[in-house]
Amino acid sequence: MSGIRPVSVRCVGGILHDHEGRLLLVQRANEPGRGLWSIPGGRVEPGETDSEALVREMREETGLVVRPGALAGHVVRGRYEIYDYVCQVESGFLQAGDDAADVRWVDEATFTALALTDGLADTLRGWEMLPRC
């Protein structure tokens, strides 16, 4: 009997803080994690680089055009391998897009009160990427 491993899905996420130190979060409109809050992002499509996928996903989910920066870290959630990058906003207007039920900048108090995706708070804490206000 051979152990068949499910094919992993490469994903990217964008970690953004505004000038006040608030963190950008989206409320997921679809599974997995429908209704929960997380950092914006999604799947890397065939032929895309992480950077290209991140720019596309951020624009689709948040209305913002971003410039991806350094890799903050990597997590595995089931079959999803997620590479999260620190980003800077270049332009756009904040609005919930296709895979987001809502989008907002959150401070520390709001962050701790939201229903977050599993492991998000601990992961961001470990990377020192929590809201800074």
Rank of each mutant, 00 (worst) to 15 (best):
I15F: 01
V44Q: 15
A53F: 06
F93T: 14
R59S: 07
P32S: 00
M58G: 10
A115N: 03
H74Y: 14
M1Q: 09
L54K: 00
V106I: 03
G97N: 05
A53Q: 04
L54R: 01
Q88L: 13
S91L: 13
L24Y: 02
N30P: 02
P6W: 15
V75M: 08
G119W: 06
G42L: 05
Y83P: 01
P68S: 02
A72M: 14
G41M: 09
S38R: 09
A72D: 09
H74R: 13
L120T: 10
C133E: 04
W127C: 11
G69Q: 12
F111P: 06
L130G: 09
L36K: 04
S38G: 08
R59W: 02
S91N: 07
D50E: 13
S8C: 00
A115L: 08
W105M: 11
L54N: 07
F93H: 13
E128L: 14
E90M: 12
R56D: 00
G97K: 05
V26I: 12
V65I: 03
D84Q: 15
R34V: 05
G119M: 08
L54W: 10
V26F: 05
H19D: 10
Q27C: 07
D99Q: 03
D18A: 06
V44K: 02
W127R: 08
Q95E: 14
I82A: 06
I39P: 01
E45M: 10
E60R: 03
E108R: 14
D102S: 06
V103Y: 03
A72W: 12
I39E: 02
Q88K: 15
V89C: 05
G63L: 12
T123G: 10
D118E: 14
P6D: 11
V9R: 05
S2H: 15
G3I: 15
V76P: 06
G33E: 03
A109G: 10
L94A: 13
R56P: 11
S51V: 13
V26K: 00
E20F: 03
Q95H: 14
D50K: 00
G13K: 03
I82T: 06
V86Y: 08
E108V: 08
N30E: 07
V75G: 04
L71C: 12
L64G: 04
L25K: 00
W105D: 03
V65A: 05
A72E: 13
T123Y: 13
L71N: 11
A53V: 03
G92E: 05
D118I: 05
C133K: 13
S38C: 05
E61K: 00
D102W: 10
R125L: 15
D99N: 14
L36N: 02
G3T: 15
W105R: 06
D18E: 01
A109F: 09
V76D: 09
A53S: 14
D98T: 11
